[in-house]
C-alpha cells in the first residue's frame, strides 16, 4: 500500500451575510477528511473572515476548496495575490 502524502495549506476564508449563521466550518469538517486549525476569525452579522490551516491529502484539499467556493465562500491562500503587475 502506498501512503498518500499529506499537505498543509493556509487560507483566508471570507463570506458575506448569507453564510454568517451557517456552521460552515463544521460542515466542512464532517464532509472531508481534513484536519483544520482556525488561527484567527472575525465573524459579525454581516461578514466573516477566517484564517484557517487545512491538512490532508492533496485531492481532498482540492475538493474541500471547491466545495467551500460552491457554498459562496471566497478562498484565498494567505499569500493573497502573488501575481503583481
Amino acid at each position: 500500500m502506498t501512503s498518500v502524502a499529506q499537505e498543509k495549506q493556509r487560507f483566508w476564508l471570507t463570506f458575506g451575510e448569507e453564510l454568517c449563521q451557517r456552521p460552515i466550518i463544521c460542515e466542512l469538517a464532517r464532509s472531508f477528511a481534513l484536519t483544520f486549525n482556525i488561527r484567527s476569525a472575525q465573524v459579525t452579522q454581516r461578514t466573516g473572515l477566517v484564517a484557517i490551516e487545512l491538512e490532508g491529502e492533496r485531492e481532498v484539499l482540492k475538493q474541500a476548496i471547491q466545495w467551500l467556493e460552491k457554498q459562496g465562500v471566497t478562498v484565498e491562500p494567505v499569500e493573497l495575490s502573488t501575481i503583481e503587475g
Binding site: Q9, P77, V78, E79, S81, T82, I83
Partner: peptide, 10 residues
Amino acid sequence: VNRLCSEIAG
C-alpha cells in the same frame, strides 16, 4: 493561476 503560484512558492 494565483493559487498555483502560491503553492509553487511554498
